[in-house]
């Protein structure tokens, strides 16, 4: 079951790549000298996985049309640990003392590779890959040009996805979320960050915030479902004039619409509930807030600027 952990190649790069380090120095274990480096290229089978993790510093990933992974990495105070089989390449850093300093990864992956990255405070920037996962705690995460699905998370770092081909999931706490040019299902959640979805082409969108604002500006599929939830944040939906059925509820927020709408009779105490259709109905758009405002506007016209 733990076959994964049987490393085909476990390379403590410090040993191999810092020949200048003298044995005498090593015995003293001067932390400042524990710099390690990896600079190598290895083969990766098609559909293989590249897994990168570090605590602080930076992860930068680009892609190319070769079945090879090029890795350039350096760590101030940690030991890089590099494993490779033909189906998986992984790079991580460890240290037996608290402050390992910054680590930098500069990695080029096959365009069809799956990429998994983890960091605490390091920023993660990726360009390419089939399926991409990026998890950070305080680091910013930015992924682009993903042919498959992207999953990105951070607690406080910003979260950005651009040009994703087959679905996106984003989770943040205070993180602002910005997703542009996304095809496939979109799930986005942030507690206090804003969620901005632009140029999306999805038949399923679900967003949730507590206090963050939400802005949606994508195409709608007549058979699609689009759900936007917030407690106190505003929700602004730029909706093209195709067949849409709206279901908008708010407890104490304002509702504005560029399209004609009707207030349903029998609304509950203090609550506004609007159901209306344009162009015969179709795409189901639901927006719910407690105290945030909901605005439905035509694309290109922002009633916010009035």
């Amino acid at each position: 079951m733990c076959a994964r952990f049987v490393s085909a190649l476990c390379l403590t790069a410090a040993m191999a790549a810092t020949p200048a380090l003298l044995p005498a120095q090593r015995q003293h274990r001067n932390d400042d000298d524990e710099t390690s480096r990896v600079d190598t290229t290895v083969a990766l089978s098609s559909g293989g996985v590249v897994e990168l993790s570090l605590i602080s510093g930076e992860i930068k990933v680009t892609s190319w049309n070769r079945d090879q992974v090029r890795i350039k990495a350096s760590s101030d105070g940690g030991l890089l640990q590099f494993d490779a089989t033909n189906g998986r390449v992984s790079l991580t850093v460890r240290s037996d003392h608290d402050d390992m300093g910054d680590t930098e990864y500069d990695v080029t992956i096959p365009a069809g590779a799956r990429l998994i990255t983890h960091s605490v405070s390091a920023d993660i920037t990726t360009d390419g890959g089939s399926d991409v996962e990026a998890h950070a705690v305080s680091g910013d995460v930015s992924v682009s040009n993903v042919t498959g699905r992207a999953t990105i998370e951070s607690v406080s770092g910003s979260l950005t996805a651009t040009h994703v081909g087959h679905g996106l999931r984003v989770n943040g706490v205070s993180s602002d979320i910005k997703a542009t040019d996304i095809t496939g299902d979109i799930n986005a959640q942030s507690t206090s960050g804003d969620i901005i979805l632009g140029s999306t082409h999805s038949s399923f969108v679900h967003t949730e915030t507590v206090s963050g604002d939400t802005r949606f500006g994508g195409t709608l599929d007549r058979a699609g479902r689009y759900d936007f939830h917030s407690h106190s944040g505003d929700i602004v939906l730029a909706v093209p004039a195709i067949g849409v059925t709206f279901d908008i509820s708010t407890f104490s927020g304002d509702v504005q619409s560029d399209y004609p709408m009707t207030l349903q009779p029998g609304s509950e105490v203090g609550q506004k509930h609007m159901e209306f259709s344009i162009n015969g109905g179709g795409a189901r758009v639901t927006a719910e807030t407690f105290s945030g405002g909901v605005t439905v506007e035509r694309p290109g016209h922002s009633s916010h600027e009035d």
């Binding site: 076959a3 994964r4 390379l11 191999a16 290895v42 089989t85 033909n86 189906g87």
Partner: peptide
């Protein structure tokens, strides 16, 4: 170093699918 790596790469089969299942378990 590279020679060592290539030896390994050609002889060790991918453990990858097993590993996601094991991690999930």
């Amino acid at each position: 170093l590279t020679a060592t790596m290539e030896d390994v790469v050609t002889t060790i089969p991918s453990e990858e699918p097993t590993s996601d299942v094991a991690l999930a378990a």
